[in-house]
C-alpha cells in the first residue's frame, strides 16, 4: 500500500533523513517513533508531497508521489503536526472547502455529517475555528484528513499538546479508524505508539534503527537471547547436559533460589534461540523445568537504548 525506498533529504551538508525505507501493507497501523528532530515529520512531509526528497521514492497504492502526485494524494489523508486550519472559517465552511478541494464525488451533506459524527465534532460544527479548544482543532484536523475517505491516513503527532483525557479520546479514535484505514502515526511518546499500533518503526537522527512488531524489536535489540532456567535435577549433570547443546555458548551456575531446584543462566551463541532444545534435552532426562525466564528488556529500554547510542556519539 505504501512503499518508501531509500528516502533521503539533505539540507546543505546536513541530512534530515538518510536512506529511509519501509513498506506498509493494507490494514496496518504503524507507529513512527523517534525523539524530537529524528526525522519523523520530514519523512511524512515527503510521503504526502509537501516536501520533495533529495533522493528516494515513495509509492502510494502504486502511484509514485513525484510522478503521479494527484493520484497518490487522492489516496492519502494527512494531518500535519500543526493542523492546517483557517481560524477565520467555521468548521462547516472549512470542511466544505476541503470537500471541494479534494473534488470528492460523494453526497456532501451525508459524507461530512458521517465524518463529524465519527470524530465527534457535531457540537462545534457551526463555530469559528479560532474559538475552538486545542482538542477540537485536532479533531477538525483529523476530519479534514478523512474527507474523501482516503484508504491511507498519515497522522503526524496527533496528540501533541492535548490533555490526558483528550489524548485518550484521540487514541481511541485512531484505533477506531484503524478498522477501515491503513494508518501511519508518528509520536515521540512511546506509550502513544504502543497503545494503538501493531507495528513500530523507530527512527533516530534521520535513520531507521528498528522496524517490526513490538516483541520482535525487543528481541532484536537484546544483545543476546540469554535466559535463566530453573531445573529440578542434579546440579552438575544438568550443567553438563546444558553445555553440550549445540547453540549454547556458556552456562553460568546461578545457585539455588528455590529449594530442590538449581538456577542456570544459559548464554546462547549469537542469534541462536536454544529454548526449545533446552526444554527437549531436560525433558528427555526427566528433569522438570520449573521456570524459564528471558532477560527481557521493555520497549522503553529498547527505545532509549536505540536512540541514546547515537546521541552520545
Amino acid at each position: 500500500m505504501i512503499e518508501v525506498n531509500g528516502l533521503t533529504k539533505r539540507y546543505g551538508e546536513k541530512f534530515a533523513i538518510k536512506d529511509v525505507g519501509f513498506k506498509i501493507g493494507e490494514g496496518e497501523i504503524v507507529g513512527l517513533l523517534g525523539p524530537n528532530g529524528a526525522g519523523k515529520s520530514t519523512t511524512m512531509n515527503i510521503m504526502t508531497g509537501y516536501l520533495s526528497a533529495t533522493s528516494g521514492t515513495v509509492t502510494v497504492n502504486g502511484f509514485d508521489i513525484r510522478e503521479k502526485p494527484i493520484e497518490a494524494k487522492m489516496n492519502i489523508g494527512y494531518l500535519p503536526e500543526l493542523p492546517p486550519l483557517y481560524p477565520d472559517m467555521t468548521v462547516k465552511a472549512y470542511l466544505d472547502f476541503i470537500f471541494d478541494l479534494k473534488q470528492v464525488k460523494a453526497n456532501r451533506e451525508e459524507h461530512i455529517s458521517k465524518i463529524c459524527k465519527l470524530v465527534k465534532i457535531e457540537a462545534v460544527y457551526p463555530r469559528l475555528i479560532k474559538n475552538l479548544s486545542k482538542g477540537f482543532r485536532q479533531r477538525v484536523g483529523i476530519a479534514q484528513a478523512l474527507i474523501g475517505t482516503p484508504p491511507i491516513l498519515i497522522l503526524d503527532e496527533p496528540t501533541v499538546g492535548l490533555d490526558p483525557k483528550q489524548i485518550v479520546d484521540i487514541r481511541d479514535l485512531i484505533a477506531n479508524l484503524g478498522r477501515r484505514h491503513t494508518i501511519l502515526v508518528s509520536s515521540h511518546i512511546l506509550h502513544e505508539i504502543q497503545a494503538v499500533c501493531n507495528r513500530i518503526i523507530i527512527i533516530n537522527q534521520g535513520e531507521i534503527v528498528a522496524d517490526g512488531k513490538r516483541d520482535d524489536i525487543i528481541r532484536k535489540a537484546t544483545e543476546d537471547a540469554r535466559f535463566t532456567v530453573r531445573v529440578i535435577g542434579p546440579r552438575d549433570e544438568v550443567a553438563k547436559t546444558l553445555v553440550r547443546i549445540g547453540g549454547v555458548d556458556k552456562i553460568v551456575d546461578d545457585g539455588v533460589r528455590e529449594s530442590g531446584s538449581n538456577d542456570f543462566i544459559v548464554i546462547p551463541k549469537a542469534k541462536t534461540d536454544v529454548r526449545r532444545e533446552v526444554f527437549e534435552r531436560l525433558a528427555e532426562r526427566k528433569w522438570p523445568i520449573v521456570s524459564m525466564v528471558g532477560s527481557q528488556l521493555t520497549l522503553e529500554d529498547v527505545f532509549l537504548r536505540l536512540t541514546e547510542t547515537d546521541e552520545t556519539e
Binding site: Y50, K73, Y78, L82, I98, Q144
Partner: peptide, 14 residues
C-alpha cells in the same frame, strides 16, 4: 504564516 499552505501541497491540486 499559519502553515495552511500544507493543505494545497498535500491535496490533489496542482
Amino acid at each position: 504564516r499559519h502553515k495552511t499552505e500544507q493543505v494545497f501541497y498535500t491535496s490533489p491540486v496542482t
